[in-house]
Design a protein around this nucleic acid. Structure first.
Lengths: 172, 172
DNA sequence: CAGATATGTCAACATGACTGTCCAAACCAT
DNA sequence: ATGGTTTGGACAGTCATGTTGACATATCTG
């Protein structure tokens, strides 16, 4: 599962460094644009796989978080995705119909439905993750270890403080 | 236009630094998740304004890039947004009907329609930008100048090399 | 037992993407 | 000047993904 196949280049990717006046409009716009293009570029690789399966990004997000936190409840997943019960319901119904996701009744609270990937679901998620990983690993490698720390710091700074614990919690 | 109102804190936001083995699956997943949550968090602020206007994110993206590159052609905008002519057409028609965007016939090539914001369009875009800026400036400030450089480097690394010139070109 | 909570389901709707097709104007090369 | 290409607009239909609102069921909790 570990990926060490992409060696970091000797010289990290050169970008214009942030200036001391890095809160100027230009540098803010640069961040907005890179975030937009970087995000869409990372996603793109998985889209082809999804389309071949007749699935969409909504399915991917559900698969991703179920893979990340096996046994999470429907309510927790709704909280992570920030969508309504009805929207998730449709996605989850489809994933179960295709036997990619399975439910089990909660042990502590029997109202809960705890979600897990089936073998087939885990295999599909692994393929999708592979695409994201390929893109992200290349970017990490080109930018270098120190840049990755900065990347995380700025992104965490974008998340409203109240929501940060939930993001951190994924890093179990 | 310059924003210096948010001082960088003495101690930058602390995040777990990337480890020397920063290509491990866990650290890749951390990047994926932060990119997802950070991106959606940044966007969120503008959504309320858009909704009040009866506009969507597609309109915002068009306004953003027209503001960024006044006088760009329809084709260039299609290239930046990565959508089809038909999809952009509807958005652009609406923005023109609301007198937020105006066209002028290209000077060199009279087939082209060069796009500009009207006064009202510029005002709306400024309000929307203000929301993104507030979020991004806070994140920059919390993370610090060096982190911002790393943030840019990783994001640029995500963009396929062939597309990088187009992103750089926005930094005119 | 009563009320709150977790989940599921049905229906109607909005947004923003897509494809396919056709057309007009303008550019460009032979 | 003719013919092919490019740029853009328009119309029609479809799909994916989100939304509200209303209602049902099972289960937990006080």
């Amino acid at each position: 599962m570990t990926v060490q196949t992409i060696p970091a280049p000797a010289a990290p990717l050169r970008v214009t460094p942030a200036s001391p006046l890095f809160l100027r409009e230009d540098e803010i716009r640069r961040g907005i644009e890179l975030l937009y293009f970087g995000y869409t570029a990372m996603i793109r690789g998985a889209d082809a796989i999804l389309e071949a399966q007749g699935l969409g990004r909504a399915h991917h997000r559900a698969l991703y978080f179920i893979a990340r936190q096996p046994g999470l409840s429907v309510g927790e997943l709704i909280g992570l995705l920030g969508i309504t019960k009805q929207s998730l319901g449709r996605v989850l119904t489809e994933l179960q119909a295709r036997a990619l996701v399975e439910q089990q009744v909660g042990t502590a609270d029997r109202r809960q439905r705890l979600l897990r990937l089936t073998k087939a679901g885990a295999a599909l998620e692994a393929r999708l993750f592979g695409e994201l990983e390929r893109s992200m690993a290349r970017a990490y490698g080109e930018a270098g270890q120190q840049a990755v720390t900065g990347f995380w710091a700025v992104l965490m700074g974008l998340v409203p403080p109240d929501d940060r614990p939930r993001v951190e919690a994924l890093q179990a």
